[in-house]
Design a protein around this nucleic acid. Structure first.
Length: 471
DNA sequence: TGAAATGTTGGGGCG
DNA sequence: ACGCCCCAACATTTC
C-alpha cells in the first residue's frame, strides 16, 4: 500500500504506538492527522484547560514529527468528512487509529468506518478490554477479582514496548490548519504537554526514591505532599501509554530495596489497573455515562439545591478541605485524588446533589478529565456504581481534613484567607473564638463563610435518602 | 479507598 | 485487700 492515514485521537505519542506502527508497516507513506471535532470541542463536558493542553500537545507532536521528516496535518469538521477529504487529497487507502471506547468515540468511529476503511488497533489499555472476563464470559464488575485476573495475564515487559520510529515518510503538499489555542491558558496548569515531558516525569517518579514511587503507598493520600505521579494528563492524551507505565512500575518494583518500596510500586500498579478497570466498565456498560450502574439508584430523591452547588463550585462551603480542593481544581486544572473523593462525597452525600452535576463540573475543569475514570470515580463515591462504596460509607470532611492535611499546609496553600488561622481551628474554623478570628484576620461570615450545612444532619439525611431507594 | 455507635477490657482512683 | 466506678483504648457492630 502506498499511503495510509494515522488518525490521532488520544494517542499523542510516537513511542509504543500500535496505530502508527501498523500504519507504517502497511504503507510506504503515513499521514499523521488530527481532526478538530466540533462535537468534542464544544461539548458541555469540554474544559478550556484540557483543550489548551491538547492544543499545546499537538504543537509538540508536530515538532517531534518534523524531527523525523514528517509533520502533523490538522483538519477540522466532522471526522468522516474531514478524513474522506484528506484521504482523497493524499491518496490514502486506509485509516489506522488507536481504539477508543467512550460511547461518542465508538459512534464516531462507526460513521468513519462507513465511508473509509478504518483499522482500529490496541494501545489504549494494556490488556484488550474483552480479554479480562470472568469464567462465564461476563465482564467483571468488582475491582479486586478484576485486578487478580488482570495480573494473572502475561504482562508486557520492556522488550515489548515499541520504540519511537526514527523517520516517517509523509507526502508533502498537504494543507494543515494552524493549531488554535491560547497558550496563556495552558500556562495556568502545572503540566507542560508532550511525550518527552511525560517520559521525564516518569523517570523521576520511578527513580526518585522514597519521595516518589517507592514512597507512594504512604504519601499518595496526602494532598499536602507531592506524593503522586502527576502523570494523569499524559496518560489521558496518550503522551504516555499504560503499557509504558506498567513496564515502569515493574522496573520500580525490581529497583525497590525493601518491602515499603515494593508496596509503593505495587500500589501504583493498582492505580493503573483501576484506570483500566473503569475503561472496561464504560466499554461493557456504556449506560453508566448517563445513568447509575445500579438502576435502583436512579431514583434517589436528590435535593439538587442550586445555591449549594454554587457554593461547592466556588469553594465557599465553609469546609476548608473542600474549598481548598475546589480552588485547586478551578485554578490549576487538577485536584489531588484524596480530595477528589472528599469533595465528591461532600457534594453527593452532604449536599445531596446528583453525582452527574459533579461529574460534569470535574470534566469542565480537569486537564486529565477522562470519561471512564471520572465517571467511575463519581459513581464509586455516590455508591451507585460498580464496586461501589456502600451507601452508608460517608466521609466526614473534618476527620478527613485532620487525617490527610494535619498541619493544614494544603488548606493554607489554596485558601489564603485562612493562612493565619491556628492549626487547631483550621479544619473547623467555625469553632474559632471571635478574638482568635480578629488575630487571624479572618472573620467568619465575612472573610470566610460559615459552613453551609451541618455534617451530622447531612449524614442522617443522606442515609435516609439512600434508604428510600431500598438498595 | 469510613465513621459512628456500641461493646469489651483493664488500669487506677477511691471508699 | 476488695469492690466499685470511671474512662481510655481498643474491638466489634451498625449505618
Amino acid at each position: 500500500m502506498r499511503t495510509a492515514i494515522w488518525w490521532i485521537r488520544r494517542d499523542l505519542r510516537l513511542a509504543d504506538n500500535q496505530a502508527l506502527t501498523t500504519a507504517m508497516a502497511s504503507a510506504q507513506n503515513v499521514v499523521p492527522a488530527f481532526v478538530l471535532d466540533p462535537t468534542l470541542l464544544s461539548s458541555p463536558y469540554a474544559a478550556d484547560k484540557r483543550i489548551s493542553f491538547l492544543y499545546e500537545g499537538l504543537r509538540v507532536l508536530d515538532r517531534d514529527l518534523r524531527q523525523r521528516g514528517s509533520r502533523l496535518v490538522i483538519r477540522q469538521g466532522k471526522p468522516e468528512q474531514a478524513l474522506s477529504k484528506l484521504a482523497e487529497e493524499s491518496g490514502a487507502e486506509v485509516v489506522f487509529a488507536e481504539e477508543d471506547i467512550s460511547p461518542y468515540a465508538r459512534q464516531r468511529d462507526r460513521q468513519v468506518g462507513k465511508v473509509l476503511p478504518l483499522r482500529l488497533t490496541g494501545g489504549l489499555t494494556v490488556h484488550p478490554l474483552d480479554s479480562v472476563l470472568k469464567q462465564d464470559g461476563q465482564p467483571y464488575t468488582v475491582y479486586t477479582p478484576y485486578s487478580k485476573a488482570w495480573k494473572a495475564l502475561p504482562r508486557p515487559g520492556a522488550a515489548d514496548l515499541i520504540p519511537s520510529p526514527t523517520s516517517i515518510s509523509t507526502p508533502s503538499g498537504l494543507t494543515s490548519l494552524v493549531v488554535p489555542g491560547e497558550p496563556e491558558l495552558a500556562d495556568r496548569t502545572p503540566f507542560r504537554p508532550g511525550e518527552a515531558e511525560a517520559q521525564q516525569r516518569l523517570d523521576c517518579f520511578i527513580t526518585g526514591g522514597k519521595e516518589a514511587i517507592h514512597g507512594y503507598r504512604d504519601r499518595r493520600d496526602r494532598p499536602d505532599m507531592d506524593g503522586t505521579s502527576g502523570l494523569s494528563p499524559y496518560i489521558r492524551f496518550g503522551m504516555l501509554s499504560l503499557r509504558q507505565a506498567v513496564v515502569a512500575a515493574r522496573r520500580a518494583f525490581d529497583l525497590a530495596s525493601d518491602d515499603v518500596a515494593r508496596s509503593g510500586a505495587e500500589t501504583w500498579l493498582n492505580e493503573l489497573i483501576w484506570r483500566e478497570f473503569y475503561l472496561s466498565i464504560l466499554y461493557h456498560f456504556p449506560h453508566v455515562r448517563r445513568r447509575s450502574f445500579r438502576p435502583q439508584y436512579d431514583s434517589i430523591a436528590w435535593a439538587n439545591d442550586r445555591d449549594a452547588f454554587e457554593a461547592w463550585r466556588l469553594g465557599q462551603t465553609g469546609y476548608p478541605i473542600v474549598d481548598a480542593a475546589m480552588r485547586q481544581l478551578v485554578e490549576s486544572g487538577w485536584m489531588h485524588n484524596r480530595t477528589r473523593m472528599i469533595v465528591a462525597s461532600f457534594l453527593v452525600k452532604d449536599l445531596l446533589i446528583d453525582w452527574r452535576w459533579g461529574e460534569r463540573f470535574f470534566m469542565q475543569h480537569l486537564v486529565d478529565g477522562d470519561p471512564a475514570a471520572n465517571n467511575g470515580g463519581w459513581q464509586w463515591t455516590a455508591g451507585t456504581g460498580t464496586d461501589a462504596a456502600p451507601y452508608f460509607r460517608i466521609f466526614n470532611p473534618i476527620l478527613q481534613s485532620k487525617k490527610f492535611d494535619p498541619e493544614g499546609r494544603y488548606i493554607r496553600r489554596w485558601l489564603p484567607e485562612l493562612v493565619d488561622v491556628p492549626t487547631r481551628y483550621l479544619h473547623e474554623p467555625w469553632r474559632m473564638p471571635v478574638e482568635t478570628q480578629h488575630q487571624a484576620n479572618c472573620q467568619l461570615g465575612r472573610d470566610y463563610p460559615k459552613p453551609i450545612i451541618d455534617h451530622a444532619f447531612a449524614r442522617e439525611r443522606a442515609l435516609e435518602a439512600y434508604k428510600q431507594t431500598s438498595g
